[in-house]
Nucleic acid binder design. Structure first.
Lengths: 243, 243
DNA sequence: GACATTTAAATGTATGACAATTATCGTGCA
DNA sequence: TGCACGATAATTGTCATACATTTAAATGTC
């Protein structure tokens, strides 16, 4: 067994959990002020340092924010989409990079999620979203673009696709999946030929969305997934032969 | 503007960020030991308390783990799927509950993501997954079940569907979406009639997956989404009239 | 009334001490 | 030798205290 279930956690972890529960269960509401560090120390019968360590844990999860000065203190934080994005991306990236997730698995997950957005995006995406896609497609056509920049543009293209669905919850969920894939994608060396083919597929997706044709968008995403998987396999094979 | 960009963060936040960068960028690898708190304090020229607060922030994100005793210390942690699940669920739940996300938006996102899993699950789900679904369906048929328990079983059913896709990255991404919906779902009072209808739709999904019929599963999920949205609208209307 | 000053409350940081934990080393005994 | 057992040292966990810094409110002054 990996985690010893019997060992009790630190005091600061226990206190952090107690406060976290109060927030998650709604016993403390947004912008409500927590007792001061000194008061918490007394309530939990620990030193102020221990309370502070607990509060820093909560701050790291964006559950609270602190303000110095008179009438300052720790307040229950309304977590913003931007903060949630950031945390999700950090977690997802590390999860993928540290757990030897295969390119194939990550790629499959990413495109499955993106296809989930495609029908909604086809129905709702605005001219703005389509313009972003066109700009990224143009960028991807430039031959002097580095592989990293190409991948970055790829992410931006797919972000526009996802945001086109007009559902912030979906955008939030997808942010992690798409961004976390980038380090894996960066391993691929894009030849002029493969770039051309990807750009063509991006154009197919863009056109399908512009025509509000969900089925065509889905099919194009399928093809893009298949091609990306092929590229990934080539890289893995080359790496294996070299070793 | 909400967040003042010019104000510099705490020392403990700066130090946490510096170490976080080192981990994310791969300059520190999994299971590598960080310098001791005393050494870090000297390196960053701050007190040990400040270093400790920084380390607690990282521990809260599962980036490091600490071990007491000789040859103990802080180690770069291999974040597990279970830990990542937990964090994602906490974040997603708070994001939804604190940002007044409409039932409609959350529901749409959830079912869009689930439909993304359906074809994979139809192709790959095992007898185990189907058995879990059947058990939950049986549970959902019990008339003395509380609304909370019914929702809990609903989550378990959909978890089995998602896990059936056999893609851990997908399961991880979906965990947040499905679990975070539960507090919103709990607001719905399930009548005997609505429960019956939901159970019938669950059976349709189960049967479709058993037949490896992706299209039928997709259609059943569409119907379930439409019905769930209807129930949600009823609740909102009732709540609005009462107010 | 407007502006400057003081004050108080809070977090941020530093320091030092001690407790608790745990791998390693050494010692002594059979 | 081999092994048990205790000493040791390194390290995190906790506490207490002091002081610095920040900030809003209260107070005072013109």
């Amino acid at each position: 067994m990996k985690t010893d279930p019997a060992r009790k956690p630190d005091l600061s972890a226990q206190i952090a959990q107690a406060i976290r529960d109060a927030i998650v269960e709604g016993r403390m509401i947004v912008n409500e002020r927590l007792p001061s560090e000194a008061e918490l120390a007394e309530q939990f019968d620990v030193s102020r340092s221990t309370v502070r360590e607990a509060l820093k844990r909560l701050a790291a999860q964006s559950l609270i924010r602190t303000q110095r000065g008179a009438f300052g203190g720790a307040f229950v934080n309304r977590i913003s989409y931007a903060e949630a994005y950031g945390q999700q991306i950090t977690t997802s990236t590390l999860l993928l990079s540290m757990n030897a997730v295969s390119f194939e698995t990550a790629c499959e997950a990413r495109f499955a999620l993106e296809r989930a957005c495609a029908p909604l995006s086809a129905a709702r995406c605005t001219e703005d979203h389509l313009a972003v896609m066109r700009a990224e497609i143009a960028l991807q056509g430039q031959p002097d673009l580095s592989d990293e920049a190409f991948c970055g543009s790829d992410v931006a293209f797919h972000r526009a696709l996802v945001d086109g669905a007009g559902n912030p919850v979906l955008s939030y969920q997808l942010a992690g999946a798409v961004e976390a894939m980038q380090p894996l994608m960066n391993m691929i060396t894009f030849t002029a030929r493969s770039r051309g083919r990807i750009v063509a597929l991006h154009e197919r997706i863009h056109d399908a969305l512009g025509r509000r044709d969900a089925l065509a968008a889905d099919a194009a995403l399928h093809d893009l997934e298949a091609y990306t998987q092929t590229l990934g396999r080539d890289v893995m094979r080359a790496r294996h032969n070299r070793a």
